[in-house]
């Protein structure tokens, strides 16, 4: 193994079932169900997936959902705004924890 991430590996996602078929089948069935048009449109779900892909920093998911959002008619501005949503939540998650820090400061300061 010369690299941890190889774009060709994304095409092999389906082969995870080679080692554990029933769980993989259930996972992919669930995955397909999740991304179907429902109360949210397939387009909205794809943008959420793009944002989550960035929050998780998964290169496979970023590759897949950049293509998928473009195919679903999203433009670059919408896609970047979705990434900012991920960044804002990630940044906010750090910052909101500063309330714990501030609590602790109060607790142990004179």
């Amino acid at each position: 193994m010369k690299t941890y991430y190889n774009p060709e590996d994304l095409k092999k996602f389906g082969s995870i079932g080679d080692l554990q078929k029933s769980m993989a089948d259930k996972f992919f069935a669930y995955y397909a169900e999740v991304f179907k048009e429902g109360a949210l449109s397939a387009r909205e779900k794809s943008l959420i997936a793009l944002a989550v892909a960035h929050a998780l920093q998964c290169p496979y998911c970023i590759d897949a959902y950049t293509t998928d959002t473009l195919e679903k008619g999203c433009d670059e501005e919408q896609m970047m705004e979705a990434v900012h949503v991920a960044a804002a939540i990630r940044g906010g998650a750090s910052l909101v924890h500063s309330t714990q820090m501030m609590n602790k400061i109060k607790e142990i300061s004179m």
Partner: peptide, 20 residues
């Protein structure tokens, strides 16, 4: 007529029509 502006396929015609 919508055709993708790059190396990807068009998405659902009905969804894109609604969006347009």
């Amino acid at each position: 007529v919508y055709n993708p502006s790059g190396a990807f396929l068009p998405g659902s015609q009905s969804e894109l029509e609604g969006e347009f």
